[in-house]
């Protein structure tokens, strides 16, 4: 009962913030409301007993990606507070497409019989995730770090000023 109330509050925060992100006319305001959206999703992860993923979500999404987005917005706007038209001419088609996809997905989710398992998650997922990364998923770990390295070097090279 308490979990359902927490879920409703968190998803309300997330959905309202997401609507502001996709619908606001002011680009800085929509970037700043990514933060409550990501924090709501952090709460959802905690409800799902994935506390390490929740901590990483706050650290990376709300703390680094949002800052990066805000940096690029502040460095590319033509002056402060100048208002541009933010949506293109595909708004009705976009709404129909997104709405159709959402309706289709929800219909699929509601009518599929999911095989519910009866086990339970370990109490301290962080150490279990670490062990799994180092034993079963070591290739995934190494390849991800290589992708990070390539993305880092690529971003620096692309964004450098040409001399």
């Amino acid at each position: 009962m308490g979990q359902l109330a927490a879920f409703i509050i968190l998803s309300a925060i997330t959905l309202v913030a997401t609507v502001v992100v996709v619908g606001s006319g002011n680009i800085v305001r929509s970037a700043l409301s990514l933060v409550p959206a990501f924090l709501g999703i952090t709460g959802i992860y905690i409800l799902l007993q994935a506390e390490f993923v929740a901590g990483i979500q706050v650290l990376i999404y709300a703390g680094a990606i949002t800052v990066l987005i805000l940096f690029v917005i502040m460095l590319t706007e033509h002056g402060t507070g100048v208002r541009f038209r933010q949506v293109n001419e595909q708004v009705p088609l976009g709404m129909i497409a997104a709405g159709a996809l959402g309706a289709f997905l929800i219909a699929t989710f509601l009518t599929t019989p999911w095989p519910m398992a009866t086990g339970s998650l370990p109490p301290y997922t962080a150490s279990q995730i670490g062990t799994t990364f180092m034993t079963n998923m070591i290739l995934v770990f190494e390849v991800t770090s290589l992708v990070l390295l390539v993305a880092l070097i690529g971003a620096i090279v692309i964004a450098r000023r040409e001399r």
Binding site: L32, V35, E51, F52, A54, G55, I56, V58, L59, A62, G63, A64, T66, V67, L70, F71, M74, Y124, A126
Partner: peptide, 19 residues
């Protein structure tokens, strides 16, 4: 039980307020 990660996360939330 993720105390350190939480602490680092809150330290990085300050940046958004400053921006």
């Amino acid at each position: 039980n993720i105390g350190l990660v939480f602490f680092a996360g809150m330290a990085s939330m300050t940046v958004i307020g400053i921006l």
